[in-house]
Amino acid sequence: MPTPILEIRNLQVTFNTPVGPLVAVRGVDIDVHAGEMLAVVGESGSGKSVSFLAAMGLLPRSATVTGSVLLDGQQIVGMSPKQMRSVRGRLMSMIFQDPLSALNPVHRVGAQITEMLRAHSKMSERAANARAVELLEIVGIPQPGDRAMQYPHEFSGGMRQRVVIAMAIANSPKVLIADEPTTALDVTVQAQILEVIQRVQVQFGTAVVLITHDLGVVARVCERVNVMYAGCFVERGNVHGIFEQPTHPYTRGLLASLPQTGVERLVPIAGFPPNMLRPPSGCAFRARCDHAVEACGSAIPPLVPVGESESACIRASELMGRK
């Protein structure tokens, strides 16, 4: 296997909060390979955004980040702010959840794109403007020349998300983090935005990390999926393998809560994720797991190969047989 373009090892993020340290990410390993579309799924608050904001160096001062993040061979953890700035937006960029608030309301859309271009190359203003219009065209905005002169409030939500994507890919980054890029949008628009992201992935060879709640989306566009729970990955592997045979009880719960044809009722996972101010010992899913045994509380279970996938459940092989 080739070396991954983004290699995260034992990433830990702790927030210093008024009520004590909050451990949001607890030792995460991720490999993102050049040009692939990788999914990261998990409940709200599981640490998906924080993990990648850490990789982008975008966390507030209250966060402590340890571990290793190698982007194209460069160590990002501990980089000076100046070095970090030269990486951000050039090698790796990010799309956020809410396109309505992600663009600055007082600047023209085109100017917001050219700013991204000119932050990393000595482009003339003229050339940057032309490129911005091209980028708007690539993401499927009609009349890109006129649209570039407009302000964000003159665009619909879906169109704004296209603008955000155009901005993010302006410098042809190697890695694009898409943090729930469709959650805030209408269902019909969601599909279009996903299509744009897929097109970018293919056309620019950009690796995309797709953070989402939506397993349906994952099944459609991704090859590999990482399932996150309480700041750790609990399962990862090939999307179809995991859909057919999830190995971790949490993943199974997630899949059971998917709307399926033929099945009337959604079965959400009972209970709540743990309080990360006081993370539980051992498997964090224990309190909600039907299969928990005493041994589950002794140590955080590491990801180990189980069947086609990797699972962080100590009873994974045993439970697979039972199904």
Binding site: M56, R88, G89, L103, N104
Partner: peptide, 11 residues
């Protein structure tokens, strides 16, 4: 959010 977007540009 747009401040975070701005920061994510590397300016």
């Amino acid at each position: 959010e747009y401040m975070r977007t701005a920061r994510s540009k590397g300016i």
